[in-house]
Amino acid sequence: MLLLIPLLFGITLLTFSLAKALPGDPVLSMVGERAQPEVIEKIRKEIGADKNIVEQYYGYLALLLRGEFGRSYYTNREVLHDILLKFPNTLKLALAAMLIAVPLGTAFGFISAYRKDTVTDRVISALSITGLSVPVFWSGLLLMLFFSLELRMFPPSGSGDLRFLVLPALTLSLPALGALARITRTTVLEVLDMPFIKTARAMGIREVRIQAGHVLKNALIPIVTVIGLDFGSYLNGAVLTETIFGWDGIGRFIMEGIIKRDYPVIMGCVIIGTFVFVAINMVVDMLYNSLDPRVRFGEQDR
């Protein structure tokens, strides 16, 4: 919990220095190379680019504390406002991807573990490692080519109702699905190998109870962790998937910000993104703790 404060301080410092060191002059790219010097000077004062770096950082922090992430250099709209507007879209996409990845991934993992070393296991294992290896921007394009351009089943890009959501969510879910199936398989195999399962069987406890009470409960712990930690990969993947499918979320927003060197947008997105990421990790940690009393904070190794 205490890690959050230095983390956020570190992030703001980092995003600020990153943005300051960016090549190119935001004022010049905003007004164009041929603008009059007086105009350039005026805008420089307006956005505070004439003060020194330390003052700029303090000003930035003070604004952040008041919940103001500044205004976009281009649209002059409040960054926080736009982020809050777009965040639900990214969340929708990530949740939809999770809805596909979590049930399928864990189911495949369990099947694979129970059918260890059979053809089914090999096929599932091969598919899950492939899912991990295929870049989302390529699988996304292939899905788009097949389902929207050939079969015309789904719109190729844009945001809106459910039909727009299917392809990006499917694309985003593939690597997570692979990762989840793999981790579930290893975990279930590990638990099945534990002495207490043998003991339970020797004690004549019904198989159904062994599976539901002991195997599932013990296997669930690492699986929940992976599901939570994977949220970071959804954020990563969202940048690419949203860019490809024109989904109006944070990922596309930050990409546009980077292309236009729109510092407040980049910094706002990175700060909010990291905050969400860390918050989710903490929730996962707490869940982990309540699921497994053996685990104490700080003792787990990733």
């Binding site: 890690l3 230095p6 983390l7 570190g10 992030i11 980092l14 995003t15 990153l18 060191a21 960016l22 090549p23 970071g232 990969s233 954020l235 990563n236 993947g237 940048v239 690419l240 930050i254 980077i258 980049i266 997105c269 990175v270 993104g273 990291t274 990421f277 860390v278 990790n281 990733r302």
Partner: peptide, 20 residues
């Protein structure tokens, strides 16, 4: 842990923008 708690691609993007 601090480094690991960054979303990888976001940080990589930030760094790729910092340097040419």
């Amino acid at each position: 842990d601090l480094v690991l708690s960054f979303p990888t691609l976001l940080l990589a993007i930030a760094i790729s923008v910092l340097f040419p």
